[in-house]
Design a protein around this nucleic acid. Sequence first.
DNA 1: CTCCCGATAT
DNA 2: ATATCAGGAG
Length: 209
Amino acid sequence: MDRAPIQEVEQRLRVLHPDARYELDFETPFHLLVATILAARCTDERVNKVTKTLFAKYPDPQSMADAQLEDLEEDVRPTGSYKTKAKAIQGAARELLVRFGGQVPQTMAEMTTLPGVARKTANVVLNMAFGIPSGIIVDTHVARVGQRMGLTRHDKAERIEEDLMRALPKDDWTHFGPAMVLLGRYVCKARAPQCAECPMDDICPKRPV
DNA sequence: CTCCCGATAT
DNA sequence: ATATCAGGAG
């Protein structure tokens, strides 16, 4: 077997993680947008620690737009790339105010005009905050697991997403991403994949990635 | 392709 | 001590 049957993978993921959600804490679409921008090359766990205090200080686009950039930088520092990220979340907050009436836009085209937002971030917000099947979340976990299981032979997120979207009915898109993240984070781990305990073991070609 | 940066696993 | 992890912009 050189590739796992993706429908079967999704079926099993449904059983294992029926309510799979992205693990970023948020109360509003704006919070999820900010949290996801901060999640670039950073674990969700660390983002949640940072956003807890961040959202207490800056709960909405207006307060974040008005913040001192230096304060923002200090607040998001533990997530890495803090200067870039502080600028991105403040820039995004200002764009929301100026162009979208203070609301997070609900289309891929609009979302990806925001600083710090490409397809992965846009998909997280559109899928999780609005329930819009804009695409499939492809983060490092989905990419790695997808490659190991032979669900794609590409290594760029956008191409991987295309392969997955082509192979899966739209109804499965929003579930598949977060469920694959869980599989990747706890079983099909980057460093030491736990194949012996993997529910996909019998259908996985185990490609080296 | 390089740069942005910090935390944890080994 | 050092490798590895985690997306987007320019």
